[in-house]
Simulated scan of single mutants.
Amino acid sequence: MSNASAGNAAAPIFDADALTGQTQGLVTASIAWFHTHWLQILIAVAIGATIVIALHSARRFAGRLAARDPDGRAGWFSIIGRALVRTNNFFILMLSIKLVVGYAGAPDQIGTTVNFLWTIASVFQAAIWVREIVLGAIEHRTQAQNYQGEALLSAMGLIRLLVTFALFAIALVVVLDNLGVNVTGLVAGLGVGGIAIGLAAQGIFADLFAALAIIFDRPFRRGDKVQYDQTLGVIEGIGLKSTRIRSFGGEIRIISNRQLLDKEIQNISNRDHIRVTLTIGVAYETPPDTLERVPQMLREVFEEAGGTVARASFESFGASSLDFVVQFDVPGDDWPTAHATRDKAMVGVIRRFAAEKISIPYPTQTTYTAAPDGTLVMPYAQVQPVQIDRSLAS
């Protein structure tokens, strides 16, 4: 082994002598600075104390603002107030020192130390503020939309963990970068680790982000009546991974949030009317003058039943009838009420057509067969005249 290699191997990782020398230099510079600038230092301390008191007063005011609305329902003022309450004393102290250290003419050693501590305090305090605002916004949205339950608490716990980890990881990288540390390897390691975790739990994260999309985009909420594919029911719960729907048949259908958002969802809770379409046929033997009056008849019958007629018109020439189409609206979103209105109107149509001598035909078909000699066989029995025995009659 060479002497150079031996020297490198023997070099200590942590140089205690260098640290002791820097500390002694800082103390010496501070003593000399105090002797020469004692008046400026006292004034700076007074100004700094005033700034600290003002910042503490502002934090207490933010605490009172947040206390008026502990659940965050009032909006952004309450959310910002809850974030400002999390301002720590170390940040307040470093902010006041940073504002007055230049006035006191501090030496370079003290200025460098203040900048170092200020960087740490400001970056991590910013991370805390951003975390509280993000989480407060999510909680405000979930509470405003009445999303509740154990699943939501679990989702918020996981969201809080992910947001906290991401923001403080970014804050650590920013602090190290400002201190002159090469963070390229650290950033690469965090990126690889994040990719590995994302690939391992991509299904869970996909459903989690879909749940957040439901919360923020609000396609539906608990209690809404929705329809997708062949499922029609009421939303009973929106969980971390899946949504539970109570179908009108009584069973609970469970579908993952990601798959649910990939479908076309019809939210039928807030519609103001139900439109029903009926096709009604009349016989071809109906006189043309009567046919002209049929749309008006249908309109009158359906309006008397409680519907609002959107269209009543001659639609087409059917195989066995002349077809008329009626589209009518029933106020509200209650299907039983719409069905009752439809039934009442259909009975009214039968009564009105009976009064007008209009027949409603039904499809009929007559089948003819042939005998071996080619003659047609009638589909009905040939009726023979009845012979009366006169002798029996007498």
Rank of each mutant, 00 (worst) to 15 (best):
P12K: 10
I13M: 05
F14V: 13
D17W: 00
L19M: 05
T20N: 14
Q22P: 00
T23P: 02
G25M: 12
T28A: 13
W33E: 10
H37P: 02
Q40S: 15
I47C: 03
I47D: 07
V52H: 04
V52K: 01
I53Y: 11
A58R: 07
F61E: 12
G63Q: 13
R68K: 15
S78Q: 08
G81A: 15
T87H: 03
L95P: 01
I97S: 05
G105D: 07
V114K: 01
L117N: 03
L117Y: 09
W118D: 14
Q125T: 14
A144D: 10
A155W: 04
T164F: 13
T164P: 01
A169K: 02
L172I: 07
V174A: 14
N182A: 13
V183H: 07
V183A: 07
A188K: 02
G189E: 11
V192Y: 08
G194I: 04
A196F: 10
I197A: 15
I197D: 05
A206Q: 12
L208A: 07
A213D: 15
I215W: 10
I215H: 07
P219C: 09
F220Y: 12
R222N: 13
R222C: 11
I238A: 04
L240K: 05
G249D: 13
I255Q: 09
L260A: 10
I265H: 02
Q266F: 10
I268C: 03
R271K: 08
L278R: 12
T290I: 07
L291E: 11
E292W: 00
A305R: 01
A305G: 06
F314A: 08
G318K: 04
A319R: 05
F324V: 02
F328L: 11
D333F: 08
H339K: 02
M346F: 02
G348K: 01
I350C: 03
Y368E: 15
P379T: 06
I388W: 05
I388A: 12
D389K: 02
